[in-house]
Design a protein around this nucleic acid. Structure first.
Lengths: 357, 357
DNA sequence: AGCGGAACTGTAAACGTTTCCAACGATCTC
DNA sequence: GAGATCGTTGGAAACGTTTACAGTTCCGCT
């Protein structure tokens, strides 16, 4: 079972390799040739070598998805959406973890090696170095996340400001007046924009008291530590807004461990609306930033750019939506809208309500 | 910023392409040549084309991970472990979802195209067709999961029997006598082996009453439906053993919705010890099948086989361990061992105790 | 009958790299 | 000083494919 080449197929069919190639690729060829070649290919078990095709054709039919932290379910969700689009278009997806050894700059540099036709990059930090590397590479790149305004690249981003407005508005409607924002590291892109979004959202509500604390990173344990610190302080807030679901879950745990009932004594919200938010008890109210849609759109943008490299750069912003669950609703039957229980999902029996962004 | 080839580097350095190639690859070359070539490469910004190298060298430095359902966190965990090993060895990882369009047979056939040097396959169903395809392919494949005994392939598997013994033993120690097993589809590999494992484990405890029901698939919603059916039956069990964590979580939800307190009226256990198990309340007692280790070992086996294709096939079985959480422990302070709370993890404040397999 | 063109085919040149092989000068050995 | 040896080099052939180009055949048309 060694490699069978097109030369052998051609010989077996009694035609030239050129004709064999044309016959196999649906190029112009007589019906007789096609038949002979296809028969030869079938009997010999011929499959075209992908590497040789890539070299000759100048494209690999591979796309890369580069992400720092595949441990976060939200990136898995994106990856899943990307994979669907990509493989439906006949591309393969290669996974480039930027977390392990190489930084995302290295990953972009690696693009020069030409093993992929394009890349979807989800950088945790956007440095100048990364931007110059991105400007230099001839390979199409779509960035997931916010970029400086003067950068001319295809981008898909979430709307942190609206997300925060949804959360803060919801908490105010729930009669919360003292909100603690537990952010992730503020030197990351999501950290920075969620901070700004929160600050802006709060401005609309002059009576609010707020404060911020940054967790070490976007994980449950870091969220637990940061939230605990907030909750043990002298003036306890009546709401915690977490910068993502993992931190939010950490916050719920912290509250529990301090004997505080959620949502009675303190309400908690998350961001990302990961599967975890629906699985935790009480369910974590969360803003869905449209991870699935962002992944899908990013993949579509990339494919479109590959098809037409000179097209103008697009920036797509995906609208967030608020998913209300038990962690933020103290008085379930006194709200303006229907009780969450009315729309319980059949699967989990979990009450949740979605508000458009 | 067009592609700069080794020919240009050679010209710029005033040497032949052969010498340039040797200088760049650390082959035998004079110090002077190396200096000239490296300088030329640096000034021109040369990066070797991966495709051409692959074609010439006969290996792509890419490995594939093929999995049906990337939605299940346990496969993500494996993928993460695989990615670490693979990228540390200078390989790229390409993700082949067998769920979307192609079956795992197609994926194996695709190997013939030679775009990867090897593959880690995690098939949900092992058919004869798949086995013959595996036997035919010259590309190294490591299978995650159980195979028939006469198949001579590198394999990494979990120990379902021991896993089930751990669970059943634990439940018996908790004075449970009527156990319902909520399995996934029994025509899948995990489904079949967990069924057999459960049956065998139960034999050791003659006084047990047991029954089985198969969920539609290994998801929360399917688990919810199947568990609900069991719990609404005329004779209610005092324990539910779920075939994985997702089904287990579904079972907890079902119990909740029926007003049954977990673990007081019914205890529930899962399998896989995914992150979800630790995040849910009450924490889901689960058997850790060593997903991380299985992924890592599979990657190592694959690399070893690539390095030495003629080596004997290895089968590695990873030992499971029981992680006890709140969902199965009704009387936390009357157990033989320490109270779970004694070993609470700092992050979640969640009590859990691990027993070796 | 001659001619233009359509339809098809084969030869050979690419794609960018690695590597075999022969050739070279310099050094060493007897 | 002749030959062997060593270290280094460049030409050219690969790897397996696609494709430009030129050639062939055949057909219909005038």
């Amino acid at each position: 079972m060694v490699r069978v080449t097109i030369t052998q197929v051609a010989a077996h069919a009694g035609v030239s390799v050129a004709s064999a190639s044309r016959a196999l690729n649906g190029q112009i060829a007589s019906a007789e040739t096609v038949a002979k070649v296809q028969h030869a290919a079938a009997t010999l078990g011929y499959v075209a070598d992908a590497t040789a095709q890539s070299l000759k054709r100048g494209r690999t039919k591979q796309l890369a998805y580069a992400v720092a932290d595949i441990g976060n379910p939200v990136y898995v969700e994106m990856m899943s959406a990307i994979e669907r689009v990509v493989s439906a278009s006949g591309y393969r997806l290669v996974l480039s973890s930027t977390g392990t050894s190489s930084s995302s700059v290295d990953v972009v540099r690696d693009l020069g090696r030409g093993y992929v036709d394009g890349m979807i990059l989800s950088p945790l930090r956007v440095t100048d170095e990364l931007l110059t590397a991105l400007a230099k590479t001839p390979t199409p790149v779509v960035v997931l996340g916010r970029l400086p305004d003067d950068v001319n690249l295809d981008t898909v981003r979430a709307d942190s400001l609206t997300a925060m407005r949804l959360v803060v508005g919801h908490l105010v409607a729930e009669d919360r007046r003292d909100i603690a924002f537990v952010n992730g590291p503020v030197d990351t892109t999501p950290g920075a924009f969620r901070r700004d979004g929160f600050a802006a959202a709060v401005l609309a509500h002059p009576l609010l008291t707020t404060r911020s604390v940054d967790a070490e990173d976007f994980t449950i344990s870091a969220g637990y530590a940061a939230a605990r610190q907030v909750l043990e302080g002298d003036r306890r807030p009546d709401a915690i807004v977490a910068a993502n679901d993992l931190i939010g879950i950490g916050a719920i745990r912290a509250a529990e461990d301090l004997g505080l009932r959620v949502p009675h004594e303190i309400v908690v919200t998350g961001i990302d609306n990961t599967e975890l938010a629906g699985v935790v008890r009480p369910g974590l109210t969360s803003v869905d930033l449209g991870a699935e849609e962002r992944g899908r759109v990013a993949a579509e943008l990339l494919l479109a750019r590959i098809a037409e490299p000179s097209r103008a750069a697009h920036t797509v912003t995906v609208a967030p939506s608020l998913v209300v669950r038990g962690s933020s609703v103290h008085r379930p039957n006194t709200q303006g809208h229907a009780s969450p229980a009315d729309r319980s999902t059949e699967a989990t029996g979990l009450g949740e309500e979605r508000a458009a962004g």
